[in-house]
């Protein structure tokens, strides 16, 4: 009798995970860029304790991104796993995460649907959600943000500057981080 019934994830799941990994990376860089470009995110991140390490991840396994506050600056650590998270938001599966990551479902709606667990200080989680709403405002056009944000997106910097900042983050800010 065959007792080993483990199945490895099919190609569709693997593709979804890869996609989630890409969006996580963009979100991490988006947070760093917004901490530099947007006064509201700067204030939010300024209130986080030094050493705060926020991770967005999918259970089980790999796709994840961590941003850390060090010397008053926000850095992205990409998918590194060697830094312990002080706040860990874990989606229960890739199918729970993707609609949120692709801007099809609001973050608060996702929490209401128990799509993710939150390990750590719920007050900082609230601050993170406000930051992610602002990042989503830059990443997505109004036609999308109207459905997923609790109120119309307000952008302190233009889309283009934000994308430039985001690319700049990718190119230059990985090590230096965004000043607060």
């Amino acid at each position: 009798m065959k007792t080993d019934v483990r199945l490895s994830p099919g190609p569709a799941k693997r593709t979804k995970r890869m996609l989630a990994g890409v969006v996580f990376a963009v979100m991490g860089r988006g947070l760093v860029a917004c901490a530099r470009l947007d006064g509201r995110v700067r204030v939010e991140a300024g209130s986080w304790p030094e050493g705060t390490a926020i991770t967005l991840a999918i259970s089980p396994g790999s796709p994840r991104v961590t941003v850390r506050k060090q010397n008053g600056r926000i850095h992205t650590l990409g998918s590194r796993t060697d830094v312990p998270s002080t706040l860990l938001v874990t989606f229960k599966g890739v199918d729970s995460a993707l609609p949120v990551l692709l801007g099809m479902k609001g973050i608060l709606e996702a929490f209401a649907e128990h799509r993710a667990t939150v390990k750590g200080d719920l007050g900082i989680a609230m601050s993170l959600v406000r930051c992610l709403h602002i990042v989503e405002g830059y990443l997505y056009p109004d036609i999308m943000t109207r459905r997923i944000l609790p109120r119309p997106a307000v952008r302190e910097a233009g889309h283009l500057r934000a994308y430039a900042g985001l690319l700049g983050t990718a190119a230059n800010l990985g090590e230096k981080g965004a000043g607060l």
Binding site: L108, L122, G123, I124, A125, M126, S127, P150, R151
Partner: peptide, 13 residues
């Protein structure tokens, strides 16, 4: 109040 978890599920932002 703005950082209280209960705020996240209020029907209105």
């Amino acid at each position: 109040a703005i950082n209280d978890g209960a705020m996240s599920l209020n029907p209105k932002d």
